[in-house]
Amino acid sequence: MVRQFTDPRELRGLAILSQPGTVIQTGKNVWDVRSQSKDAYYTVARFFPEDRKAKILSQATWTCTCPDFLTRHTTCKHQYAVMLSLKLAGDIEEHSTPAQVEESEPNILCPVCKSENVIKWGIRKTTFGENQRFRCHDCGHRFVIDRGFCRMKNSPKTITLTLDLYFKGVSQRKIADLLKQFEDVSVSQPTILEWIKKYLKLLAKYSEKYKADVGNIWHCDETTVFIKKEGEKKYYQWIWNLMDAKTRYLLACQVSETRYVKDARKPLQKAKEVALNVPDAIVTDGLPAYPEAIKAEYYGLGRIQNPHIRLKDFETKPNNNILGRLNGTFRERTKVVRSFDSGIGAEEFATGMQTYYNYIRPHQGIGGLVPAQLANIPINLTGNRWETMIGLAVK
């Protein structure tokens, strides 16, 4: 059972930390913490035993210049504010070891009668290689396994290369030219668009199959995307991104026309469906919609009753720099598209980017792995990750 913070000093320490400019580090182990009752700061200091090289938080001695600590000699709210600040920064920095992926080949079923009584029945040779054929003992039907590319005139390599280049920011015209030069494959721009729409729709459903084992510090931010709208030159919508700091897993990617409280609650609701646990803290910027939205969705669910932390600036931790990098990845694609229309809408784009970011794109901040690997998603994401994902989605 999740333990609630019941000590009033802990809760007051979180309340201090949630306000900007209240915890300022002035030395290696010295902080100034703003008073809640008057316009003043108290000095919090941390000391370690001289005979120990390892500086462990639980073995440190804390002092504070506030009257509460000087009178009672117990941990005060100002010390709790500093401890929580250090914990948030530490949770953002640390990385978990990815769980061992257990691969299991699913039972092959006859597509007609759904029987498992099937045997191998020769090889089918195609332009793109050889496919194993099967025969059902019960109904006699012969078939090959659909791995997502049946009745496609182009090879899986060509199609998945197209998808990867698209999300790396290459325009459809340049993709067609690249395929012609290096693969000797002639593909039109409408064909590329059809491939993108088809497989984005397929992967969007499959990516919601597993829940992510994420950390306890989440970050939320929003960015703009331009939409073609008749009569308006610059019409844009908002994309809300909610990411786990430890695994870099993108928990939610929602689109809205406004930035009110009802809009801010949508990614928070989605994240609750995707994650296995609730956060201790959700770090946001100063958008007025966040405090009420986070309180409505997460108040009292975790160890900290109100997990909202408003960032102080872009340098002090916790900050939203990791979401700034995510927004840069989004802009790699949107600066080429410039605006979305009926071809690929903003919703489809956001869903596709979420799948690409979680399952396809390796992240330097987590050792070159993809976020799904650290989030213990049981998928073997090696080799051609696009082809792996499409094959699993079809099954």
Rank of each mutant, 00 (worst) to 15 (best):
residue 147 R to K: 12
residue 263 D to H: 14
residue 28 K to N: 03
residue 108 I to S: 07
residue 69 F to H: 13
residue 176 A to G: 02
residue 142 R to C: 14
residue 219 H to S: 14
residue 16 I to S: 00
residue 180 K to Q: 05
residue 37 S to V: 05
residue 332 E to P: 01
residue 376 N to F: 11
residue 172 Q to F: 14
residue 350 A to W: 11
residue 158 T to Q: 00
residue 287 L to H: 12
residue 170 V to R: 08
residue 322 I to H: 12
residue 371 P to R: 04
residue 118 V to T: 15
residue 170 V to Q: 08
residue 161 L to W: 06
residue 142 R to W: 02
residue 112 V to K: 15
residue 183 E to G: 07
residue 232 E to G: 01
residue 244 D to M: 12
residue 93 E to M: 10
residue 4 Q to I: 10
residue 146 D to V: 12
residue 243 M to G: 01
residue 121 W to S: 12
residue 390 I to T: 05
residue 124 R to F: 12
residue 189 Q to C: 12
residue 162 T to Q: 05
residue 277 N to P: 06
residue 198 K to T: 15
residue 114 K to C: 10
residue 331 R to C: 03
residue 239 I to E: 09
residue 376 N to I: 08
residue 363 H to P: 05
residue 132 Q to R: 15
residue 393 A to G: 07
residue 349 F to K: 08
residue 235 Y to W: 04
residue 73 H to W: 09
residue 297 E to L: 04
residue 168 K to A: 11
residue 174 K to W: 04
residue 99 A to Q: 15
residue 372 A to W: 01
residue 302 G to A: 14
residue 274 V to E: 01
residue 88 L to N: 08
residue 20 P to F: 00
residue 39 D to Y: 03
residue 186 S to W: 03
residue 69 F to Q: 06
residue 358 N to S: 01
residue 383 G to I: 07
residue 163 L to G: 13
residue 247 T to W: 06
residue 142 R to S: 15
residue 2 V to H: 04
residue 187 V to S: 04
residue 307 P to M: 13
residue 172 Q to T: 13
residue 220 C to H: 05
residue 362 P to N: 04
residue 318 P to I: 00
residue 270 K to G: 02
residue 293 A to D: 03
residue 322 I to T: 15
residue 85 S to Y: 03
residue 333 R to Q: 07
residue 211 K to R: 15
residue 200 L to S: 11
residue 368 G to V: 09
residue 301 L to V: 15
residue 245 A to S: 11
residue 359 Y to V: 06
residue 190 P to W: 06
residue 232 E to Q: 13
residue 131 N to H: 11
residue 236 Y to G: 00
residue 173 R to Y: 08
residue 365 G to E: 11
residue 296 A to I: 03
residue 50 E to Q: 07
residue 246 K to P: 03
residue 162 T to C: 11
residue 186 S to A: 10
residue 34 R to E: 09
residue 154 N to T: 14
residue 148 G to N: 07
residue 259 R to D: 12
residue 18 S to Q: 05
residue 281 A to G: 02
residue 12 R to W: 03
residue 157 K to P: 00
residue 137 H to Q: 13
residue 90 G to K: 13
residue 312 K to T: 09
residue 333 R to W: 02
residue 337 V to Q: 04
residue 38 K to E: 10
residue 316 T to A: 08
residue 162 T to K: 01
residue 240 W to R: 05
residue 217 I to V: 15
residue 20 P to Q: 02
residue 22 T to H: 09
residue 215 G to D: 08
residue 253 C to Q: 11
residue 328 G to V: 00
residue 147 R to S: 07
residue 217 I to L: 11
residue 12 R to P: 06
residue 169 G to N: 04
residue 390 I to L: 11
residue 256 S to R: 12
residue 285 D to V: 05
residue 65 T to Y: 01
residue 374 L to T: 05
residue 52 R to T: 13
residue 324 G to I: 09
residue 263 D to M: 02
residue 24 I to Y: 05
residue 299 Y to I: 02
residue 294 I to N: 12
residue 365 G to Y: 00
residue 9 R to L: 03
residue 279 P to Y: 09
residue 159 I to K: 04
residue 96 S to T: 13
residue 121 W to N: 15
